[in-house]
Amino acid sequence: MPHNLKVTYREAGQGDEVLVLLHGFLCDARCWRPQLTGLSQNRRVVAWDAPGAGGSEDPPAPFTLVDWSHALAAFLDRIGVERAHFLGLSWGGVLAQVFCQLYAQRVRGLILADTYAGWRGSLPAETCRLRLARCEADASLPPQAMAARWTPEMFSAQASSTLWDELRPVIADFHPAGFSLMARSLAETDTTVQLAHIRAHKVPTLLIWGENDQRSSLSIARHMHAQIPHARLVVLAQAGHLSPMECPEAFNAEVHAFLCL
């Protein structure tokens, strides 16, 4: 399986400490604008476009979260990052968990935001099946129809129209093949083993959730917190699924405090 795929990325700041940002599906590095700006003082912050998203190359099928983990390791080698903190949002949080088990020596700490223990590990089997079927059907939608269909699920009811306007073009630029592969990887993944690894090795971990997350409920956050008892769980009031975009100041403050421990 090729892992040296073309990968585009954005970065800000400099320093020995590195924070790597892993976006969710239907997102890319543009969704991390507030974090690239707000967390790059005294550290290097890198936001990749995962293979199958943004300006990066589509991976071949089949492609699993193990394959994305190897692709991430190869990408980090190319940009000269040996060890880092990893902040994963939604799908990116599941990737961070798998990467941590495969490349534990490269992980200084984990921040898992509005994520899952994989869909298979966090959702009833029928819900998981329906989500995957919907994603595979929606992958054939025109770009603007895709943006109109999915944007409302990503924020709380209190989100501003400015946020909607910022996210719509990102979703409209989705890769049908990459989106389908990411959805399938979520549906096929249960990270119970990875959570046990994080717990056993006491990897420093912060969990951040939007109070009004429509896609990954607080019950999922609490279940993951129970699996990683040394982690801290922070709930951001009135935020939805993309809490780093919707509540950037509060989100960044929690991340900054964690990184400074």
Rank of each mutant, 00 (worst) to 15 (best):
L76E: 04
L87N: 08
H85I: 06
R83E: 14
A71L: 04
A71K: 06
L87P: 11
A84N: 12
R78Y: 00
F99V: 05
A84R: 11
G92Y: 06
F75M: 05
A73G: 03
F99H: 06
L72H: 03
S90E: 05
F75S: 05
C100Y: 00
G92P: 10
S90G: 12
W91Y: 15
C100T: 15
G80E: 02
R83S: 14
A71E: 05
Q97N: 03
V98Q: 05
A73W: 00
V98W: 01
C100H: 10
E82F: 08
V98L: 10
V98M: 02
I79Q: 01
L87W: 14
R78N: 07
I79P: 00
A96N: 10
L76P: 00
C100M: 04
F75A: 01
F99R: 03
G93K: 11
C100D: 10
A71I: 01
L76V: 03
L72G: 07
Q97Y: 00
V81M: 08
I79S: 01
I79T: 03
V94M: 15
G93R: 10
L72K: 02
D77W: 00
Q97R: 04
A73Y: 11
V81W: 05
G88F: 09
G93E: 12
L76G: 01
R78M: 07
L76F: 01
G92V: 13
V81F: 04
V94S: 08
G80N: 07
H85E: 06
L87F: 15
G88S: 11
R78A: 14
G93L: 09
D77C: 03
L95D: 03
H85G: 04
H85Q: 10
A71P: 02
L89V: 12
A96G: 11
L95Q: 08
S90A: 14
G80R: 02
R83H: 09
G80H: 07
F86N: 00
W91K: 10
E82M: 06
G92L: 11
S90H: 11
A96W: 12
H85Y: 15
G92C: 10
Q97I: 01
F75H: 11
I79L: 07
L95V: 13
V81R: 05
A84T: 11
E82R: 14
L95Y: 07
G88Q: 08
L95R: 06
F86A: 01
V98N: 01
L89H: 15
A96V: 14
D77I: 02
G92S: 09
L72V: 10
Q97V: 08
V94T: 15
L76W: 02
E82S: 13
A84E: 07
G88W: 08
W91F: 15
D77P: 03
L89Q: 15
L76D: 07
D77G: 09
G80S: 07
L95F: 07
Q97F: 09
D77K: 11
S90I: 08
D77T: 07
F75W: 15
S90N: 12
L72T: 15
A73H: 14
L87T: 08
G88P: 05
E82A: 13
G93I: 11
